[in-house]
Design a protein around this nucleic acid. Structure first.
Lengths: 351, 351
DNA sequence: GCTGATTCTGGGAGCGGTCCCAACAGCATA
DNA sequence: TATGCTGTTGGGACCGCTCCCAGAATCAGC
């Protein structure tokens, strides 16, 4: 081991740093304004306890030098990155094509931008991705996490929760030990809305095509259907899909086979409703005359069907804003919370 | 001014830092492994010139402590953030709904993930957004910028270019002083492909619905149409749209009015082609019997038309990978470059 | 044995900020 | 005049890394 006794050259004063090319630092601003780093820092952080003279001197020095604070230096000491990760725990590439997802992503980006915080997009599809994302969050890259996970029992949820990083999920996260803050549309209430509407138009043999029941949406929408149908929710009226158009078609064909007297279908997503209408057309049933069709999502697909789709609109824009609000409040030390937002019935031609 | 002569309490040795709670630092790992910070740092950065003994000691200390390097501390000294911004210069919210955009975003995220770099999403729609994004890039938050700008003369382009931050655009950026690295699909070649195919099936009165001509795609696709049509590209065969479904419909109606003998239309986007087919149906023309329709994009919309759309597929996945490749090479000091990728004709039922 | 060259290692100096404390001016109060 | 308080200021210490340099250890060749 080398001797601890070292020669100690006099440490040069901080202001004597050699003139560097490159971005101006807080020191450059301080020198130009004729004040100390501390004063510049005070101006940068709200300008409390700074004399008017110093304030204007610093401000003009900042604009003269084009100074922008170095984000990493600041984060190093504040332990805050002022950015948030949008984590997509989804193996299926399909999600990216989902217009609801697009709205959510856009809404979150914009809501964060209002707080001058950027959004970092991360995909945790494969196991390797998951490790990457874990490391990423662990490295202190972000102050909080927005979690978009559509299937239950997702390992990434537990993993991130173990870091105790502020986190808000989109939709309930069933099957997780940890209670996780979340924002969700009222899937169950929305389904009730739709089925109640179908009944109000005189339909009685109302079938349903569900989404995957291991996801929060799928189970809740089926529950809403059952709430309204009560005893009339016979097993032959319930068929399962996976949110894809093709599955909507095959499920509807199955429904028609099992319950030929069907006069309405509540389909748990617009994309599947697309498939359902195709199946109905193929079976020679007219929409809405013979069979009424109700969708869910109010996606772009809802207006391109013939007739256009009566559906349930989820408040995606509000959802994203609520997610951000919840996340920021958690970052500020508030406890996690859950928010459920109401849906809206959009009546078009199919029912 | 306070006296420069201050009492100087002895600076405590670095390793004598009080025991903190919180994430382990490189120092903690060093102490546990019985080596110095320098050695740990060497292990972290490739392990050159480290003895096997030290290497294993450090590695086990890392896994024992669960150490993850603090990203901000590292960036502060390396002047590298190891992340990239995906900047969306778009006022229209429509872009987010565009499946091509989704593919691009996903592709970029994944390609970056392979290099262990996160993608930061930023929207520069309004002027205020633009300032925000500028400040963001200026603060050294990212090493490079992926620019998605669909309209020419975008001020954000010049602004970012002035920072000399590595940048790669998606699509050519016409009307800019600065030569900007970019990756684009061969719009012109793709349009030629389609029109040539329409001619090969015997069509002669081929009209076109263009996109906005101030964007790179719109102009190039029209040019490709003209290349093949030559003198036959009469003015009455050319109508303009804005990539929306509605505009495709009205432009096609206009075309039918001006040139009733039309036997094919090359529509510069699938969404507009959707509208075109609706207009044709309304006018009583059968597709493809009376009028063939060729689209562009091979979007999800292309398979939901009846008949499904013959279209041009853009290599979005390759585009995103090329953008990342180009950007990373620029970050490593290579000069900017441009890449044009070939398109592919996808024959379905509409032509 | 003595040289050099080649690993390997420790630790000081800094990256560019924020935080904090002591110092000081200015003023009211005792 | 002595004392306290408040608003303002400078600058040292530090955040957790990487970089660099000097020095120790090892090894080859003479």
């Amino acid at each position: 081991m080398p001797s601890a006794e070292g020669h100690r050259p006099p440490r040069p004063a901080r202001s004597a740093r050699s003139v560097r090319r490159g971005r101006p630092t807080i020191e450059d601003v301080a020198v130009l304004a004729g004040v100390s780093r501390g004063t510049v820092s005070r101006v940068l952080n709200g300008g409390r306890n700074v004399s008017p003279g110093a304030l204007t001197a610093v401000r003009s020095a900042i604009s003269k030098t084009g100074y922008v604070a170095n984000h990493h230096a600041r984060s190093l000491v504040t332990h805050r990155s002022r950015s948030v990760a949008f984590i997509l725990s989804e193996r299926q590439e399909r999600l990216f094509e989902d217009p609801n997802f697009a709205t959510l992503l856009r809404g979150c980006t914009q809501a964060l931008a209002e707080h001058d915080m950027p959004l970092v997009l991360a995909i945790a599809g494969t196991d390797e991705d998951r490790k990457r994302v874990s490391r990423f969050v662990a490295a202190g890259h972000v102050d909080g996490v927005l979690l978009i996970s559509t299937h239950s029992g997702d390992p990434v949820v537990e993993e991130l929760a173990s870091y105790h990083v502020p986190m808000v999920a989109c939709g309930e996260q069933p099957g997780h030990e940890v209670r996780i803050a979340h924002v969700a549309a009222d899937d169950r209430g929305g389904a009730q809305q739709m089925v109640r509407y179908l009944r109000s138009t005189g339909r009685r043999r109302i079938g349903t095509v569900t989404g995957p029941l291991d996801g929060p949406g799928g189970a809740q929408r089926l529950a809403g259907y059952r709430d309204v149908m009560g005893d009339e929710a016979a097993p032959e009226l319930i068929a399962h899909g996976d949110y894809s158009e093709a599955s909507g078609m095959t499920a509807t064909e199955e429904l028609l086979r099992r319950a030929p007297g069907l006069d309405a279908v509540f389909v748990a997503s617009d994309l599947m409703a697309h498939g359902a209408m195709r199946a109905l057309a193929r079976a020679g049933r007219r929409v809405p005359d013979d069979v009424a069709v109700g969708g869910f999502d109010d996606s772009a697909a809802a207006t391109t069907t013939e007739p256009p789709l009566t559906t349930i609109r989820q408040p995606w824009s509000r959802i994203s804003h609520e997610m951000i609000r919840l996340l920021l409040s958690q970052i500020d030390g508030e406890p996690p919370a859950a928010v459920i937002l109401p849906t809206e019935l959009v009546i078009r031609g199919s029912a």
